[in-house]
Design a protein around this nucleic acid. Structure first.
Lengths: 331, 331
DNA sequence: AAGTCTCGTGAAATCGCTCCCACGAAGGTC
DNA sequence: GACCTTCGTGGGAGCGATTTCACGAGACTT
């Protein structure tokens, strides 16, 4: 049998109400009484039932997180940041994905309606954006971890995509490269545009134009990166520097370059984006724009906790700085 | 204001008990009554409160998962398997790590005592094993995802480590290699022993001895793999095949081999273990023994659900088969 | 000495559901 | 026709906390 507050109350010769007061650090409890109650609690190892507290208080000290997929290379980092932060404040994390399509989303919706958690962390969901938006307007605290663009309708955390693109360009220019190519992410993503803009701006202010045929849209995958390079090579235009909009496509690109007889970095310098683990495992080691993934997760979690505890959130997104990690592929 | 079961009851002109019966598919409800109740439920979009159900029933339809770290390269796959399976059965997943040391474990212990979840999924925890064991004996349903060895005290899922080692050996022998080296995992892990045994057995029955100086202990990291290869090279013994006990060390090993003037696979064929994403991103692509990570997660989740729903579990661990994925590093 | 304030405390309602028990009506048996 | 069963249903006591409200005992006024 579970030990309940009633048992504590009985042993300490007080009412349940008083035990509850002690538990929650409420004032109006005599010091000696409080101490007696606390001793009993320690003795019998009483811990309040999460369920009962949740029911009575209407809040569960649990937050939900909805992620499109857990197998993406940077999910682990973000998740770790989130979990560590929540944990430090005694919050639990309920994890959901929409991996199994509409049915997943349905299950998720049920958990939402069932009030299984107090607030929601979202990683830019592919399809569910509208639904999330509804929830948010209905009063569910939501914070979005936004790797793709900007969604001003939610509180969110993002990175300096534009700045990252600019840094990549500056580094390549500084190392003496003159002919630039880009393998982008999907063009309808805000982050793709931002990375491209930053990159392009630095180039043009350095006097290097970015030839339109040397900007190829891709899809953030390794194979996509390879295909993009084929296109670049087939364009017949020369290039000695390549900016890929994420690490996966950079890796695919490097491989394709090699297969086309270009050495990296001698013939073509390559810069990626993200700094996922593979960047430090591939050959050559990838120079890349680092997103502080773990910090992003942590920041989002902190923001959500803030709203849950009644603090007001700034209405502009939290933006964390990227940083250029120089490795072998673009020394 | 939340819609409650009382409101449904009132609108459908029945008692709360009857609504509850309909909700839980209990028998003894008149078909037409049930239908009326269901209509009301749909109309006002009623969803039972998870908290209240949990309190009343004593079970939350939520399971906890304790993972040492979320950033390990294969965590994502396992997690995805777990989440998908749980979700399909309407269970939620509460995620914990012990990333922040003893304090994390403490927080976790609190959630356990608070009965925040019905059962626990564990990935072989570094330190907490004894504690988990206590919980298990105290009646908490536990299933362990066991990547390191065998822990007969728990229900668990594992892979055919020995078989995997044997497959690696067979493949290398078949491709004409004759001098074998091994970069192991930590020797006190059960999986390391199993992989080594399987490998060694096939070799000796093929008439190739495994020279003790060509078996080097490592730590499952990329740098560790590199260091191990240095030792192998310094031993002065020749080898034309290398079996690394995980992919990360295999990648480190390949790099070190190259730096020592050995070509992969021409001079040395390399086989890894795990088949994490990096295996298909590195250069050359890594031949490796695949662990069905997602399936392992799914299997563990299914086992846990089974016990939660009262079914008996077989008392031997579930063992999922590895499979050899042939890529470039050992064609 | 009567009246007003604090302070610490307990009783009881509440959160939203499940589930046991009791009960009336209909149908079956002898 | 009296007596069981069976079936469908409602009443109400839990689950284990929080929280409101009332109340008695001192301390402080005037």
């Amino acid at each position: 049998m579970r030990v309940t507050i009633a048992e504590v109350a009985q042993r300490a010769q007080v009412s349940k109400a008083t035990v509850s007061r002690v538990l929650n650090g409420k004032p109006d409890v005599d010091a000696s009484t409080a101490q007696r109650v606390r001793r009993v609690i320690d003795e019998i190892g009483y811990v309040p039932s999460a369920r009962a507290v949740g029911l009575a208080r209407g809040r569960t000290r649990t937050v939900g997180m909805l992620a499109p997929s857990l197998t993406w290379p940077w999910m682990g980092e973000v998740l770790q940041g989130v979990v560590d932060t929540l944990e430090a404040d005694g919050y639990g994390l309920l994890l959901y994905t929409v991996n199994r399509g509409p049915e997943s989303l349905n299950q998720f919706a049920n958990h939402v309606s069932a009030n299984a958690f107090d607030g929601l962390l979202v990683i830019e969901p592919p399809d569910a954006l509208h639904y999330i938006s509804t929830l948010y307007r209905a009063g569910l605290p939501v914070v979005m971890i936004d790797d793709r663009g900007t969604h001003p309708e939610f509180p969110s955390v993002a990175t300096t995509n534009r700045q990252g693109g600019a840094d990549a360009a500056r580094h390549l220019v500084a190392s003496g490269r003159t002919r630039f190519a880009v393998v982008t992410g999907p063009l309808h993503f805000g982050c793709t545009q931002a990375r491209l803009d930053g990159f392009r701006e630095v180039l043009s202010s350095s006097g290097f134009p970015l030839h339109p045929d040397l900007v190829v849209e891709s899809d953030f995958t390794t194979t996509g990166g390879g295909v993009a390079v084929e296109k670049l090579v087939n364009s017949g235009l020369e290039f000695d520097a390549l900016f890929a909009h994420n690490d996966l496509s950079a890796v695919g690109a490097m491989r394709a370059l090699r297969e086309n007889g270009r050495r990296v970095p001698e013939d073509v310098a390559v810069v990626g984006f993200d700094d996922v683990p593979v960047a430090s495992h591939c050959e050559p080691l990838l120079t890349t724009v680092r997103q502080p993934l773990q910090e992003m997760g942590a920041a989002a979690a902190r923001m959500l906790i803030s709203t849950l505890e009644g603090r007001q959130l700034p209405d502009h997104p939290t933006v964390l700085p990227t940083s250029l990690i120089v490795r072998e592929s673009a020394p």
